[in-house]
Design a protein around this nucleic acid. Structure first.
Lengths: 216, 216
DNA sequence: GTCGTAAGCTACCGGGTGGTCGGTTTCCCT
DNA sequence: AGGGAAACCGACCACCCGGTAGCTTACGAC
């Protein structure tokens, strides 16, 4: 039990921290095999406990999924919505939204994004909560596009359809991007900002170049 | 048994046709609840047979999924690849690809597209087959983008990344589009062609207007 | 040292899974 | 009328699921 060595140094193994570890392992497995195809024994084995032992830290399978999804939405709130909410210029805001969201997926890994689609596995109450948080995010992006439409910068497309399109492009990343693949994540990020912004804007101004300048 | 009435008219109820019906029903249920969450009893009930009776027409659950996925890829081959393969101008071809693919999803329903993602549920042999067919399609789109890059029409983005982006936008449609919703499919289709083409092309020429003219 | 608590395990539960077997019904053909 | 095949079903199988009860162990506080 190598973990015990660390336990000696930090005598109190926070129960919550251990639960966090279980969440992380569970997220990885569930993402790889799907929620239903993942058994509690799979998770217990991966985490080094028996199923019964694991139940001292968690409440149940569905609750596990709910916690993971909530964590995913927390990440969106903190790392995507919060840093972009106060950007005044809607074009600038859109660019930042894409950059932060895609950047998160590329860096943290898409596990969490993929699990966000297993909505039907949640209890109705939990499903309502997650759906509400998703809708909130969706509305923010949609309103950004509507602002752009108001100043004639948006292409002649339905703002909702355009928003769905943006989410499609970005969420799909987690289905194909491999961090050990040959495309570096900086390239993907730069390209995605360009693809996303250009797909919806008539005449995007040149990137303000805060982080990425045009290559040529 | 209302089906019997029809059987009287067409005395030979082709076994294959009955199997087809089962595939269709299974696709609808599996898409709604997910492959693993769908039991053979669910399907049997929906199709009006007992589980044992159903096994006279099908070979097993995994094979059912494989057949559905193969059918989906047949549809792509017939209705997307075949009618666009011989278009010479790559920009025209790209436009047609998006139009046909998105059009199919909007009209047939996305069941089949969503099921195409449950790759991990297949046996390795079946998985290899489906993956091969997917890759073939992917390569066709990618080469179209590469041709566009060769004539300086593609934006400064990696063609593979751009291809993934296109697939993301389009495949995502089946996750949000409701045929009984308020956005008519013609609008979605028109918008998607514009969004997709404009996302990857520097200066898309005005649509040749074969089917859809600019609205204003 | 010993006691209380938390951690963790073995053994088990009821129920549902994909799948099969043997038999019965139904229908068409002659 | 009756024979043969295809259609269909009730009962069952072995197995695995999520989850729990109750016991044992390990450890820190005093």
């Amino acid at each position: 039990m190598p973990r015990q060595a660390k336990a000696k140094v930090t005598p109190i193994w926070r129960k919550e921290a251990r639960a966090d570890h279980i969440y992380r392992v569970a997220a990885e497995i569930m993402c790889r095999k799907g929620y239903e195809a993942t058994s509690m024994n799979d998770i217990a084995d991966a985490v080094g406990l028996t199923k019964a032992g694991m139940y001292h830290y968690i409440q149940g399978k569905e609750h596990l999924l709910f916690e993971i999804m909530s964590f995913a939405m927390d990440m969106v709130d903190e790392n995507v919505i919060a840093p972009t909410r106060d950007i005044e210029d809607p074009e600038e805001r859109l660019r930042a939204l894409v950059q932060h969201h895609a950047g998160r997926i590329l860096e943290v890994g898409g596990e969490v994004t993929i699990l966000l689609e297993e909505m039907w596995a949640l209890t109705p109450a939990h499903r309502r909560i997650i759906r509400g948080r998703k809708r909130e995010y969706f509305e923010m992006v949609r309103q950004t596009l509507q602002q752009l439409a108001a100043v004639e910068k948006l292409r002649q497309v339905d703002p909702s359809v355009a928003t769905f399109s943006l989410f499609g492009m970005i969420n799909w990343i987690s289905r194909w991007y491999r961090r050990d693949g040959k495309i570096p994540k900086e390239v993907v990020l730069k390209d995605f900002v360009e693809l996303a912004v250009c797909s919806v804007l008539k005449t995007p101004s040149v990137s303000s170049g805060k982080k990425y300048r045009a290559l040529s």
